[in-house]
Every structure is written in structure tokens, then in C-alpha cells.
Write a protein that binds this DNA or RNA. Sequence first.
DNA 1: CGATTGATGCGACGTTCGTCGCGTTAGTGA
DNA 2: TCACTAACGCGACGAACGTCGCATCAATCG
Lengths: 221, 221
Amino acid sequence: MTRAILKCNYSCIMTSNTQTPGGSRPGGRTARNTAAVLQATLDELGEHGYHGLTVERVATRSGVHKATVYRRWGGVDGLVSAALEWSTAHAWEPTRTGDLYTDLLRLAETVARGFADAPESDLSTASIAAAISSATVAEALRAFMADRHARAAVVVEEAAARGEVPEDTDAHEVVRVAVAPVYYRLFVSREPVTAADLRRAARTAADAAARGLLTTDHRTG
Amino acid sequence: MTRAILKCNYSCIMTSNTQTPGGSRPGGRTARNTAAVLQATLDELGEHGYHGLTVERVATRSGVHKATVYRRWGGVDGLVSAALEWSTAHAWEPTRTGDLYTDLLRLAETVARGFADAPESDLSTASIAAAISSATVAEALRAFMADRHARAAVVVEEAAARGEVPEDTDAHEVVRVAVAPVYYRLFVSREPVTAADLRRAARTAADAAARGLLTTDHRTG
DNA sequence: CGATTGATGCGACGTTCGTCGCGTTAGTGA
DNA sequence: TCACTAACGCGACGAACGTCGCATCAATCG
């Protein structure tokens, strides 16, 4: 889901320096440091995962002094939060094929692929791990996922417009039903995620929506 | 889901000393140390969470020397693994009311309650966090969840026997659809989990199963 | 261009982590 | 009861972590 973000290079982060200190002096050096540190954070996550993410290594890699990193971001959790908040600004759009099932399948595939390729070496994985022990990261993750959910909801709304699903279908719930089993297998039950599993998850969500099981007033079932 | 385990006292662990070293000398002292250390691990998890779980504190609390804990369990991840493996032996049974929806609702409620009461202070939460960075814990968690799934499948099989759902319903998939959204909200999207959410998850799973959306051959959808 | 001052670089410090070698304790079996 | 030895207790050690005070740098503004 955030896979493409890791491919992002130096200049990519340069453009979104929302992490400037007080805001009183967003000068060139500060922005440069922010870019270098966040990029180093992503690189370190890609190489050693969240478990091996160290302020000292990030500082050395970025060329920014260790004390500065501690002052600006507070620690490892702050680094993950900042990287995650930045990625929220990164535009993302779901693929729209004109068929709800296919759209949901693409969504599930995106999730699975992002984690399957490099387990524990992804920003998303790091965020989930860090959010468990850090309220700051938890809030950043919540905001990130809310953004993704809002964007993904489009595929359901279009399906409703086409008449595939009832008008009062809960778009967010459809997305949840489609992707939740994937995350569940990855992080909770620790079962392998096959292509058939992804198809089943998407099929269940699409069929349930089509039959009116996921409408907004169905909530009090 | 593993909430009740934390209530377990000293003697409870004493009875399952599967963690003896080579097996050549499962004597009284070794078993006593195992019990003390695992109990201290659960206590520390309850007080400080996984993030604050330290070998040094566990050693001090249990009265066992730090070096011994490192030798026997290797570190924090080993402690979590051992605690989790032990809890697999702990018998657990799903509530059976004679109605699939209600049974699934109870299941979802158990999951939600286990995490809602004391976030990040549960063995399950610690396991999920630790499994991300530790292959050992990941395997222990997989085995634990496989056991829980096998036990929970009974409610679906009985529903099939009653004729509520088709004979070839995939029991495991029904359970996944029922609980996955709960875990998803808790750890991924970080949304609050309300009673209505639990009802909706259980209702969706039960209805989808009743309509034949979760049969074994539906997989290739 | 020069003064201001927020941000940074720097090095040192106390703390905690994880490991190691060695002497001792206490289950085990004769 | 007694020897054997696996497991343990103990203290010390190097390494890494996170923090601090102070000197320096550079972005901003007059």
C-alpha cells in the first residue's frame, strides 16, 4: 500500500518539509536535514526493519548529528510518525476498472504485495509495530489509514452509481471486509496469503455488498 | 481471547513445565524457575506492556538471575514465545448458544474485550508486536492461532449440522470474516470498536455463510 | 552588509543491555 | 548415602543508548 513510497528519492521528500521545528525558521539547512533524516529512516527500515531501526544509525547515515535527531523527532517512534505523516500527503489512487470485484481484488493485492515482498521491511509494517507501543505513531497511522479509506471508497461509490450495489452501501465497510482478512492473515493468524485468498476476500466483500449485507442501516443487525 | 490466562496464578504454570532445557534434568529447581520467570513475564506485560518488557526486570521480579534468563530463553522474544506456547496448552472453548450469529458475536466480543480493557498490556498484543520482528514468536503465534481456529470452528460445524449454513461451508473462513475486521480496527485502521461494529461483523459473517458465499469451492471465485 | 538568535555540531557523561568465565548449588542415578 | 554434572548464581565487562552543556553555524531581518 505504501510500497511505492520507499522508491521515492531524496528530492521527493524535499518537497514536503512539514516537519520544520517551530515554524519560525524553515530555512534551507533545516529542510535539508529533514529530508536527509527521513530518507535515511526509510532506507534503514528497508534494510533492517523496524526492529533494527536505531536513531544512531539514522543519524550516521543522514550525516545529521545524533543529538539533533533526538531533539527534532524525539526518538525512533517520532521518525516513523514523521515518515508516515509525510506519506499521507503522497497522493494515492485506487485502480478503477468498472467492476467492484476487480477493484477490490486490486486493493487486496496491493496490500498483500506491499507486505509479501519485503516482510518487516516496510514503512507500513513498521507503523503497525510502532503504533502498538506509541500513541504518537498510533495517531499517525490512524490518520494515514483514514486517508487511504477515503480514497478507496470511490470504487464502492462508483459501483453504487452503476447499480452493482444498493445506494446506501457503507463504502468503508466494504473496503474493510475486503482487506481485513489479508491483514489478519499477515499479522494475526500468520497464515500464508495466496492469490486464491485474495480473490475470496474480494469476492466475499463484493457479493455481500451486492446482496445488501453492507448497507449503512444494516449496522444494528 | 487470552485474557483469562493472565489471571492464572503461580501453580497454574507450574503444571506445564514444557520449557525445561535439554530435557535431561527437568528437576524441581528448573521447573520452579520456569514458573517464576513466565509468571513474571505475564505480570510485567500486564504492567508495562511489550514495549516495557525487559529481561532485567523479569529476572529481578522472578528472583532468577539475568544470565539464566538469557541462557534459557535468549531474550524478550523468547519469553513471549514461551508464554504463548504455554497458553496454547491452556484449554479454551467457544461459547455455543445454538445460533451461529450469536456464537460469532461472542467470539468477536471476546477478541475486542481482551484488547479494549488493557491495550498493549496483553499477551496477545505483545505477541502480535513481537511476531513482526521475531520469527520465533511468529511461529508461536501461528501455532496459537491455529489452535484457537480449530476450536472455534466447532460453532460453524454445528450450524451446518443444524442446517443454518451449507454443508460445505469453510468454517475457518467464517471465523476469519467474523474476527478479522475487529483486529483490523484495533491494529491497522486504529478505529474505535463499538458494540455495533461487533454485531455487524458477526452478522456479515453469519449471513454470508448462510447464503453460501463462504463454501470451500467458492474459493476460486 | 551586519547583528540576532534559533538550530545545529560536538564531545562527554550516566545508564542500560547483553555476554562471558568461573565457582557453586542441587537434581540425578548408582 | 555419595559422586556426578547439568543448571544456576555471581560479578565484571564492552557496547550501545539517550541526555546534557556549551560552542558554532547560518537563516532571517533591519
